[in-house]
Nucleic acid binder design. Structure first.
Lengths: 212, 212
DNA sequence: GTTCGGCGCGAACATGCGTTCGAAAGGCGC
DNA sequence: GCGCCTTTCGAACGCATGTTCGCGCCGAAC
């Protein structure tokens, strides 16, 4: 991406801080004063440059019709993911019953949509305990899942193991009438069990680990 | 808080979706058309009501000077984090030299600001290889770090081990003239080494794991 | 030197847009 | 019915704001 002149850089900075403070974009004359520019036309000129270079988008004829674009020229969209509960070894996942989530969500997490790959109906769970440490999931992690009751070989899925009364997150492989559950940590041994013993709860999409 | 009339509810809804789509607030006449209201004064009247009730804030005499208040209204802020490179066992971390990142970033990742705890100067690294699997960091993970050259006991830091020529991510504890590096996976053994052998590269903030 | 393109300047113009005001239409208690 | 308040309506007023245009300034290329 072409780099920008000092004035354009200054305008872009001013745009950001103005929106940060006021929650709406500045007018041309706001920019003029804020950057110490002597004429509105200079602002307009540089805004056009910024638009050409893909840093902003403008809606013509509309006051304050300026939008700052992200690095790729696309605006990062935010989706709110319901945190339906905690996931621990001894409990099944509280999978959402309906497509539309009721207000049974304990909490909501806002993430950019590329973190859930633009999928819909995604829900999140907070991991309690270190029971899934072999799957590289630590206590406190947040996992994002997509509702699913079946999976193809190699999918990373959250499954409920009936005999152990335990939920875990592993890659699944169907091998005849039994199922192999491969831990994310390849140095660990897989679990072999019968197909009737596993109940798929959801497909893994991504996970997030806060600092502590 | 007093509840609002159907029209006020409709206007508030329209406000939200308009801002969501355009990234700037609507004008009075935008609201008028969008809600099928026959006069701008009705919009103004209801906006005043909404302001009285504390749902919005208005800047008078300023076009589109509307700000939605409250937890629902305040959008999660997005910050763009530069992905400065890859982190692998055999290479030191390419720590940013200046405070302002140059355009040496290979890529940018947009995240909500609570994912980096509102810290500044955060940078990200893509993890290559499974060398940090004992620290629950897998191949393909993205780790968010804060520049740092020192740390207090218990901090999770990325350190460069001079003798091994290897970078790793562990909790650090100073024990006399040597240093204990404790893996995130508590079943693993810690590393003991001399203080001169470790070089702190950055503090761990959070990490993210895409699906594959 | 001359030319040309990038950039800044100032003023005027057209329109977007918030505001105001008088009047009228409903709801509600009496 | 009568008051009283809330809400709606329509139109105008006037400032706010985006746009345009002609004119200078300056450095690079020729």
């Amino acid at each position: 991406m072409k780099d920008l002149s000092p004035k354009q850089d200054q305008i872009l900075d001013f745009l950001r801080s103005f929106i940060e403070e006021k929650d709406y974009p500045p007018s041309i004359r706001d920019i003029q004063e804020g950057c110490g520019i002597s004429s509105t036309s200079v602002v307009d000129y540089n805004l056009r440059k910024l638009e050409d270079k893909g840093y902003i988008r403008r809606d013509r004829e509309i006051s304050r019709g300026i939008e700052i674009l992200g690095a790729r020229g696309r605006r990062a969209r935010i989706v709110e993911i319901p945190v339906l509960g905690s996931i621990a070894a001894g409990q099944p996942i509280p999978v959402p019953t309906s497509d539309r989530f009721g207000n049974d969500a304990l909490d909501m997490v806002a993430v950019t949509e590329d973190m859930v790959r633009g999928k819909t109906n995604v829900f999140a769970l907070r991991v309690k305990g270190t029971s899934m440490i072999d799957d590289l999931i630590d206590d406190g992690d947040i996992v994002f899942l997509e509702p699913a009751r079946s999976a193809v070989d190699g999918d990373k899925v959250a499954v409920w193991l009936k005999d152990r009364e335990e939920v875990t997150l592993k890659r699944i492989y169907h091998e005849g009438d039994r199922v192999r559950l491969q831990p994310a940590n390849s140095t660990m041994q897989p679990i072999y069990t019968s197909a009737e013993n596993v109940e798929i709860q959801g497909k893994f999409i991504s996970s997030f680990r806060p600092s502590d």
